[in-house]
Simulated assay, not measured.
Amino acid sequence: MATTTHSPITRAYSSSSKIIVLEGNISAGKTYLSNKLGQSLDYKVFLEPTTTNPYLQQFYAEPKRYALDMQLWLLNQRYNTYLAALDYALNNDNSGVVLDRSMFSDWVFAENCRKEGLISPEGFKQYTAIRDSMLLNVPIPNITLYLNVSPSECLRRIQSIRKRTIPLTYLEGLDICYQEFLKEIKLKGSNVITFDWNQFGEVDDIVTEIKKDISSTSPSLLLSKNIIGNLVKNREDITSTYQTELSFMHKESLSSTSSSAAVVQDKNNA
């Protein structure tokens, strides 16, 4: 059963430019459903760009040291993917795009890491500043489709399908942060549609809900090539800022590690 929430705020592109983002906890079923929706709607699918994540193994080994580095990398990847999706939607007026997560929900993972103490207050402030710069003037999705799966069911799927495990408390934290995120994206103008996906569901039911939104004639602003051009230019500036910040944090991390090691050595020699 779907729960649909409409925001009174106008979406920032034409009804013919269809941006759909799938959201949900880890192993909720987003990637599979993204591909199925792309086939059913004849939309281009943009999957989450995490397969080449250079920080994943380091994060698993030392989560507190690499959490911010990895989150900034993911934010940058998701930003570029979202701009590519916008560009495609603009230049293919009779089509649309489906994204497996987006730059908007990247906050869910950063906030959860902050709460767990994996990202420091200073690091989170840096993350927020970069994210705010990226979000400036970026249109929100027409539809945010949320697959609602309990943390315990996500854990069962991770263990049975991915053959690994994640602390249940981590998944529970993501679930809480996702509820905050959905309220935010709704207020910004996206149509939030929630599906209970604990037992999975029928793709046709979701397609029906999406088509209801697509057929809406509510007024909206048109995206233009000039806006896309400005976003691309902004992307170059922000990417440069991201690389500078990351380089600075690497130096700070190495300096901190060296200082800590020196202190330990001094104590051992005392």
Results as ranks from 00 to 15, higher is better:
residue 66 Y to K: 09
residue 226 N to H: 08
residue 76 N to E: 15
residue 88 Y to A: 08
residue 72 L to T: 06
residue 69 D to M: 15
residue 24 G to E: 07
residue 74 L to S: 11
residue 145 L to D: 05
residue 125 K to N: 10
residue 186 K to T: 11
residue 227 I to G: 05
residue 244 T to L: 02
residue 61 A to K: 14
residue 213 D to H: 10
residue 70 M to L: 08
residue 231 L to D: 05
residue 28 A to S: 11
residue 22 L to D: 09
residue 55 Y to V: 07
residue 128 T to P: 03
residue 4 T to E: 08
residue 110 A to R: 05
residue 242 Y to V: 11
residue 152 S to F: 11
residue 85 A to D: 01
residue 174 L to C: 10
residue 211 K to H: 09
residue 233 K to F: 04
residue 232 V to P: 03
residue 134 M to T: 02
residue 219 P to N: 04
residue 73 W to M: 13
residue 9 I to Q: 13
residue 219 P to I: 02
residue 88 Y to F: 14
residue 154 C to S: 14
residue 192 V to D: 03
residue 42 D to S: 14
residue 41 L to H: 00
residue 133 S to F: 13
residue 183 K to M: 12
residue 270 A to W: 01
residue 53 N to G: 03
residue 28 A to W: 06
residue 14 S to G: 09
residue 53 N to V: 02
residue 168 L to W: 07
residue 21 V to G: 02
residue 199 Q to A: 13
residue 5 T to P: 11
residue 98 V to M: 05
residue 73 W to P: 10
residue 107 W to Q: 14
residue 205 D to A: 14
residue 108 V to K: 05
residue 33 L to A: 00
residue 261 A to Q: 13
residue 254 L to T: 12
residue 42 D to A: 09
residue 26 I to Y: 12
residue 54 P to I: 07
residue 127 Y to F: 05
residue 174 L to R: 09
residue 28 A to I: 05
residue 25 N to T: 00
residue 14 S to I: 02
residue 184 E to A: 01
residue 90 L to Q: 06
residue 189 G to P: 06
residue 61 A to Q: 14
residue 258 S to L: 15
residue 195 F to I: 06
residue 231 L to N: 03
residue 170 Y to K: 04
residue 112 N to W: 10
residue 61 A to I: 04
residue 19 I to G: 01
residue 134 M to E: 09
residue 84 A to H: 07
residue 240 S to I: 06
residue 10 T to R: 15
residue 62 E to C: 11
residue 130 I to A: 11
residue 170 Y to H: 10
residue 53 N to T: 03
residue 50 T to P: 04
residue 260 S to F: 10
residue 5 T to F: 14
residue 69 D to C: 15
residue 174 L to H: 10
residue 156 R to M: 02
residue 97 V to L: 07
residue 186 K to E: 08
residue 4 T to A: 05
residue 79 Y to P: 07
residue 21 V to P: 01
residue 92 N to E: 10
residue 96 G to S: 02
